[in-house]
Design a protein around this nucleic acid. Sequence first.
DNA 1: TGTACATCAGTGAACGCGCGTTCACTGATGTAC
DNA 2: TGTACATCAGTGAACGCGCGTTCACTGATGTAC
Lengths: 224, 224
Amino acid sequence: MATRKPARKPSRRGRPPAAPAAPLAGDARRRLLDAAARLFAAGGFAGTSLRQVAREADVTPAMVSYYFRDKDGLLEAVLTEGVELILGALRGALTGPAEQDPLLPRFVHVYLATLTAHPWIPRIIVQEVISRDTPLRQLFVDRFARQAVTLVAPRLQDEMRAGRLRGDLDVRLTVMSVIGMCVFPYIAEPLLGRLLDYRIDPDFLEAFVPHTVALLEDGLRPAP
Amino acid sequence: MATRKPARKPSRRGRPPAAPAAPLAGDARRRLLDAAARLFAAGGFAGTSLRQVAREADVTPAMVSYYFRDKDGLLEAVLTEGVELILGALRGALTGPAEQDPLLPRFVHVYLATLTAHPWIPRIIVQEVISRDTPLRQLFVDRFARQAVTLVAPRLQDEMRAGRLRGDLDVRLTVMSVIGMCVFPYIAEPLLGRLLDYRIDPDFLEAFVPHTVALLEDGLRPAP
DNA sequence: TGTACATCAGTGAACGCGCGTTCACTGATGTAC
DNA sequence: TGTACATCAGTGAACGCGCGTTCACTGATGTAC
């Protein structure tokens, strides 16, 4: 889908088709993806023109159709890449050997580290998938949200049942609370960064992870 | 700015100008605001055309220029209205008589009740103000974010210093955590609502307020 | 070895469409004289 | 009382611009024969 597959009858003459995945494809495709991720995150999908993306990637607008069919195809490719980054990190952290350090700090650390490395991901998701009602959203729900929830929710429930986390809270609400607490500063940074004097960088990560773990584990009530 | 102020030299003849605030102005303006809030929240600002808004409000596209000058003016009016709704509710709840019930439950309840009544507000804010870098954003930061922060942060700090909330957490990070936890389900509902089986309605509010207060106050660690 | 040729990555100009905005205009309203 | 007239809320058609997309084309590549 991503690389060109001309639909002609095979021939024995001429240059043979490249390998299916086209590993040697020029980096124009790569530059288009990077430019689109940056611009979509900063200006929105509808607010960003293909001419902008192409200029930023230093190619012709026609290359979008060449590699991604159309503008929606480009968004889908950008989203898929971002989503796989997050899912991959979560899978690695949550499905390892059963006995590791507790679930909550592990989840918070991996999730926040991934967001810090790629803060454009939640910004694009929140803008384009949450609010637009397109076929792409359904695909996104199936390919990402459902997997993320089924990765996190059962493990949270296990911890609750095992008594390692309190068991009187609604699991689904708790999933939302934890994710919201983690992701909000990354989404709001363009607005709140100056006001609250922070930037998304390793220093922020280093402060925000222990803060989040401490708040989530023990809450705001002072120790007796 | 909102109502028409033709710039001609005064005359003693003819129909006199309406009162400055034009309290009798037809409801076309009202319908435009409502339609714009709904459509901007669902489809984004750049993704929504003035023809759509006008059709939804049952007026001519020219009415946007008539009442709001241009598309940006319409967004500004929509945002201002939403922002005042939230700020008004917060002010009423946080600046009352000094001795009331504790700060945290009061804040959570009022904030979530306002969001439940107007879930389009955080959706438009998150889409249009957080990610687009326009002059409107600066105005928004000054008129809303700064006021909201200066309304909440000092009171949080007072509670910490008075020992009614634990004092070892960073105030600015705590503000973000609390807001993120509260607002996330409202932003994510179009995406996560079906998946986690919830809708934004009074029933949700009734469950989410005590959940949020309990989680924020005591955290996830089981009681000893 | 030479060369024919299919495919490669990529170009540049053009297409029609829908957008935000403008403009001349309208019938109703209601006070001043 | 009658009426002139400025302003009201609002219309409908048109403007030019920038958008996403398409299309004919190009020089380079590299295997088959």
